[in-house]
């Protein structure tokens, strides 16, 4: 008996060890280094280093561009996460009810995920190109003058469409996988009880989908905040006049293009802080309601 308990205490760590080692070396260590870097002023090659305390942070908060970028990020991330989640849930439910054409739809819906994010951005850039794109042509018929290189709102719409488009496929997949996991017997029982499709969704499907939905909520938040930069880069480059300059793109511009390592590290730290806080909130307040 004693031996079994000993084994059980060691077992979880054995199972986790490879994960934790890789995570530590390739993620946590660089993150810690970035934390340290955010207190330094350094040239690109690391030849001259000065400790500057919180100067990189205070400089950011004094920068009106940075503050604007926070607002832009909020609009962009919330729109992308909400749109991508709700549209894909609707689509997954629709496919779930189909018998004959489910396969065609799945293929149709999933393919954008096979396209590299930068290419997806390029394709949307092309479709909305004011000179040669199809969309501005169609919009002109409706009396809308489209030029996202000058109009900040249109530019934002463009990046939201492109980023959402890419993420819908992904959410759709996991929603379909989640729906599959719902036992048919439960659905039949509900149907026999005479519950209509809308009621069945709220009382049965949605609660049972909650673990998937929660997972996707966290992942979509991270996606909208972190992984959308190739799309921005290929479509608007943060413009016009910073209308689509989300925080992660600013990190890229300042760190990768501008080689201003201290400031970009400080921005990364702030961004990671925000995402961690968001995730903690999601786990604290939302996961509690999820029944597994």
């Amino acid at each position: 008996m004693k031996r079994a308990i000993f084994r059980n205490q060691l077992l979880p760590w054995l199972l986790l060890a490879p994960q934790l080692v890789v995570t530590f070396i390739f993620f946590l260590w660089p993150a810690a280094q970035a934390g340290w870097q955010s207190f330094l002023r350094e040239d690109a090659f690391g030849l001259k280093t000065t400790f500057v305390g919180f100067q990189n942070y205070t400089a950011l908060l004094d920068d009106s561009q940075y503050v604007d970028s926070i607002g832009v990020t909020l609009v962009f991330s919330i729109s992308v996460a909400v749109l991508a989640l709700s549209i894909s849930l609707l689509l997954a439910l629709a496919v779930d009810r189909m018998l004959t054409s489910a396969r065609t739809y799945t293929t149709l819906l999933v393919w954008p995920y096979a396209v590299a994010p930068a290419i997806a951005g390029l394709l949307w850039w092309f479709i909305f190109n004011p000179t040669i794109g199809l969309a501005p042509y169609a919009l002109e018929v409706l009396g809308i003058d489209w030029d996202h290189s000058l109009d900040g709102t249109q530019s934002m719409i463009l990046v939201i469409i492109a980023a959402t488009w890419k993420q819908i496929s992904y959410n759709f997949l996991f929603f379909v996988a989640g729906l599959q996991a719902i036992p048919a017997s439960l659905r039949e029982a509900a149907a026999i009880d005479g519950a209509g499709p809308v009621r069945r969704f709220w009382t049965l499907t949605l609660p049972l989908l909650a673990p998937t939905t929660f997972f996707l909520l966290v992942v979509n938040t991270v996606y909208a905040l972190f992984d959308t930069f190739p799309v921005i880069d290929a479509t608007t480059e943060g413009g016009p006049a910073q209308a689509t300059n989300i925080l992660v793109y600013k990190v890229y511009v300042d760190g990768f293009l501008g080689l201003n390592l201290g400031s970009s590290a400080a921005q990364s730290v702030i961004l990671m802080g925000v995402v961690i806080v968001l995730t903690v909130i999601q786990f604290r307040y939302i996961e509690r309601r999820v029944e597994y």
């Binding site: 995570t23 993620f27 970035a34 992942v219 991270v222 890229y252 970009s264 990364s268 995402v275």
Partner: peptide, 14 residues
């Protein structure tokens, strides 16, 4: 939490 933090590391700093 440590494993999840992995998702939240800004790619540029890696």
């Amino acid at each position: 939490a440590l494993v999840l933090v992995q998702l939240m590391v800004t790619p540029d700093i890696l």
